[in-house]
Write a protein that binds this DNA or RNA. Sequence first.
DNA 1: ATGAAAGCGCTAACAT
DNA 2: ATGTTAGCGCTTTCAT
Lengths: 354, 354
Amino acid sequence: MPVIRRQAAASSLPQVKDVARLARVSTATVSRVLSGIGGVSENLVLRVRRAAERLNYAPNRAARSLRVRRAQSIGIIVPDIENPFFTSVMCGADGVLQDAGYTMIVANLDENPEREQVHLNTIRGEGVAGVIFTPTIAQAADYRTLQDCGVPLVAVSRRPHNLNVDFVGVTNEDGSKEAVEHLIALGHRRIAFVGGAAKVSSTQDRLAGYRRAMAEAGFDADSDLILFGDLRQSGGYEAMLRILELPQQPTAIFSGTNFTTLGLLRAIHEKGIRIPEEMAMVGFDDMPWAGSLQPPLTSVAQPTNEIGRVAAQLLLARLRDPKRPLEEVTLPTTLIVRASCGATRHLDMVRSRK
Amino acid sequence: MPVIRRQAAASSLPQVKDVARLARVSTATVSRVLSGIGGVSENLVLRVRRAAERLNYAPNRAARSLRVRRAQSIGIIVPDIENPFFTSVMCGADGVLQDAGYTMIVANLDENPEREQVHLNTIRGEGVAGVIFTPTIAQAADYRTLQDCGVPLVAVSRRPHNLNVDFVGVTNEDGSKEAVEHLIALGHRRIAFVGGAAKVSSTQDRLAGYRRAMAEAGFDADSDLILFGDLRQSGGYEAMLRILELPQQPTAIFSGTNFTTLGLLRAIHEKGIRIPEEMAMVGFDDMPWAGSLQPPLTSVAQPTNEIGRVAAQLLLARLRDPKRPLEEVTLPTTLIVRASCGATRHLDMVRSRK
DNA sequence: ATGAAAGCGCTAACAT
DNA sequence: ATGTTAGCGCTTTCAT
């Protein structure tokens, strides 16, 4: 015998069947019109469109996701949502994704790797159509679980280990080399490298650029002068304190990432060290306010918005054609010369410190 | 007669029924255990938990959303995802929401009000459990559509017009007054106010604080000295150019929002004006690098993370109890004195410019 | 070109 | 305390 059920409260939202009734067509036709499949007479298309508009119809995305077994959303996993590099990347991706009708589910790891697993499970449960992420420390297996569900992944900024994914990066090594060569051209010989997280590919590539520049100039890359912080300001701050305790000080510092640079600056200001006279400086990552820093920062700028845009485009391309070959895009960096490197001063002044 | 249907490809994801089978219970029991309703024997709870873990089960959130007619996600609508104020708020909200099992759907208006309507429709379609937003220009009706669907709203930073929602703000007026009084105490009489977007409540409150400080000190608030930019650096930059064309220059500027401050600074640096000697400055909004700016910026700091946290908590509270009275939380600002206001110099030097 | 209806995976009402 | 099963709103197959 049939079970008697309480009727759920009618949704205040219009549904396909409301649109269908108003347009005097079937729900199938409404769906066909609104998803733009085609194969519907012009007449009905018009009626359906009008009805949908009249009712201010917004399709229930959960129902759609359930039916097509894939959500119209993509997950963005960022190590730190407060880092301007990542927000700028997100902003670039957002524009592209929004135009394609995707929503953006943002997972902030907040430099807290335990969160990664939780987030990945949630994202798997969301049935997102794809994921844009920046690899943190150890995870390949977790991301592979997503891949096994057929969710395409695009890595940004850091090259993931043991994971076949599309990738968007920049000329980390050449950009760093150019920056260090610039310092060398200004007369510096003892140049420190302060990287962000030591193990990520971007840091290693930037270190490689530093080493190449030093080697080609015939200078020692004194291992005392190679330090690592993390991705917060504190890492740079502490690195600077360590540098100040060195028996033989560098005359210049190349900083491998934005927050490290800010941390270094903070320590330098606290100690009253003058830039660039006592310490010259170039930092990887430009920031919208880099020109208003004390002093204006010479930096290696990444095309951050473009990185996000390309990442989103790669994802959409793969959604369209899952079989396409893996793609790896490397975008160019730009050395922006401001005052912190000392390029605007006489070389003698820079060198006088030795 | 029954219609023959093509079987959809079996999902590679485990489902409730897989967990149920493995645990030798019904799907209802699995659901009860995993959603923590209670009323299940300890024995079965254990078996279900174990089975779910073994299968690495992640519930299909779309199916759940469809069934309970509400997603486990909340929408965050921000005017500009690249503005550190909003990212910091998002970060605070994220922590709370994540712990409560919600995902965060981020909609970036990118200062583009047309996008707002599109985003609101999408968010309505997502069936989010709630929305945290910062009102932009004109919208009340659009947001009301959401409210009519029973989606609770929390406004952040700017008070929305004609909309009954929970609200998290800061002591804009008192914070600004304190900042301007600080400048007055340093001997300034001609103090300019450069606000962000003129029409939003936060700008107006900050202007009110400026006016009160000036009035109480018995100074004119010369209307020439009250300017507005927008929420990008360019607004501040252009405002500074206008200030420089004034017949009688101010000796100090109080800037109403972070990007405006950076824009002002950029113009000031370009013109080679010395801060604070030729122009003293205090800005609303602290930034993690405010101490590394040129010169270190005296600012009115908002507890940005806390704002986000409180917003999320208000939302969760209302989800628990939709009937609770509307709440309005005002968090305190803090004046952080650094060098840009000239507090570290002699008064005579500041005043000497007149 | 259009419509009827099954079924996506979950939850909760109802039955036991 | 546990199980059975309808149905959330959509898309899509199949039938016409």
